[in-house]
């Protein structure tokens, strides 16, 4: 009897462990999003499409940052969907001090804000810069790298929906191979985006030896909030890359946003990991592994892979190898040590 008890330690959060809230969990460990007092950094009335992953990811991240800083937060935003759908005159959805300057300079503007806070002796006020994948991995990359290199006290969050959605779904350097975009149409001998060498910004960020780098997904709120809170507890340049599906750009159902994000991680294509000072310190094991097809199939941008006649099977296999390489590289297939809540 005593053996059994020892073996099956009661987890006081069994029911709905991975849900947003959990009345059985200790107050201190509850999610920000489950709280009635969450800041709603982005409030209702914004013009994001139905089921927008970015609207969700941004609220998750900023609400967590707001809790971590006790409301002492300033947000900087690159041009992009998030900026456009939150602040068309005469209405803004933001409830935190917020500035939008340009497409490619969010990291630098944030550096400036952080410098101002430092010089004014208001270092309790923290700065979060945010941009989409285009504003981060492409046009904003120079400023971002500069911010990293100077180790400015900024948390930069990239909301990655894998293309330029605001301008009508064009390819970015974060667009995955084979994905159809308006500039990588699904026609010709190699439909969709090409198999390039990839541009893994989290790894590039790590190469700057900054104190903290993490990937997160709207599909795992607890992990995301934990990473944001951890990032806010650190001074210096920090980077979090959040996976945010785009129903419009990906051709997925609006209700599938979180499911697709979940599948991206569970197939290995979007690994969830974190690193400190250039070294990987942890990854989130895959809980229910799925083949990449399961992730690809609900998205119209990959529909050409499943058409008869092409070499979709071989190309899916190539994507599967990418996923498998991630699984091996980040050690994603192992027993979870502890429920990550």
């Amino acid at each position: 009897m005593s053996d059994m008890t020892a073996e099956q330690k009661v987890k006081f959060y069994q029911k709905g462990t991975f849900t947003v809230g959990n009345r059985l969990v200790d107050q201190a460990r509850r999610s920000v999003q489950g709280s009635m007092e969450r800041s709603n950094a982005i409030t209702s009335g914004h013009r994001a499409c139905q089921g927008c992953g970015e609207a969700l990811g941004a609220r998750y991240a900023l609400d967590a940052a707001m809790r971590a800083t006790e409301g002492q937060l300033i947000a900087v935003n690159a041009t992009g969907c998030l900026e456009v759908f939150t602040t068309p005159y005469p209405e803004t959805s933001w409830q935190v001090p917020w500035i939008h300057s340009l497409f490619g300079n969010a990291a630098a503007v944030a550096s400036g804000v952080a410098a101002a806070m430092r010089v004014k002796g208001r270092e309790q006020v923290r700065v979060v810069a945010q941009g989409g994948d285009g504003g981060t991995t492409d046009i904003g990359f120079g400023c971002l790298s500069g911010m990293f290199e100077r180790n400015d006290d900024v948390l930069y969050i990239c909301y990655d929906n894998e293309a330029y959605m605001n301008t009508g779904v064009q390819r970015s350097s974060a667009t995955p191979p084979t994905a159809r975009t308006a500039t990588t149409p699904a026609v010709g001998p190699e439909p969709g985006n090409v198999f390039g060498t990839g541009k893994n910004l989290p790894l590039i960020a790590m190469a700057h030896n900054i104190p903290y780098v993490a990937t997160a997904s709207v599909s795992d709120l607890h992990d995301l909030e934990r990473k944001v809170e951890k990032a806010m507890a650190i001074r210096g340049a920090r980077y979090i890359h959040i996976f945010v599906p785009c129903p419009l750009g990906w051709g997925s159902a609006s209700h599938d946003t979180i499911r697709i994000a979940r599948l991206a991680s569970e197939c290995g294509l979007f690994p969830l990991f974190e690193a400190e000072h250039g070294e990987i310190t942890g990854s989130l094991p895959i809980r229910r592994k799925v083949p990449v097809e399961e992730y690809l199939r609900p998205q119209k941008r990959f529909a050409h892979l499943f058409k008869d006649g092409g070499d979709g099977v071989a190309r899916i296999a190539r994507l599967q190898r990418m996923a498998d390489a991630n699984i091996a590289r980040f050690g994603l297939q192992r027993e979870a040590e502890e429920t990550p809540l």
Binding site: I74, Y89, P97, W98, S101
Partner: peptide, 12 residues
């Protein structure tokens, strides 16, 4: 930009 008196700067 001030958390004690927030507003949004740079609207579309």
């Amino acid at each position: 930009l001030d958390p004690s008196d927030p507003y949004s700067i740079g609207a579309m």
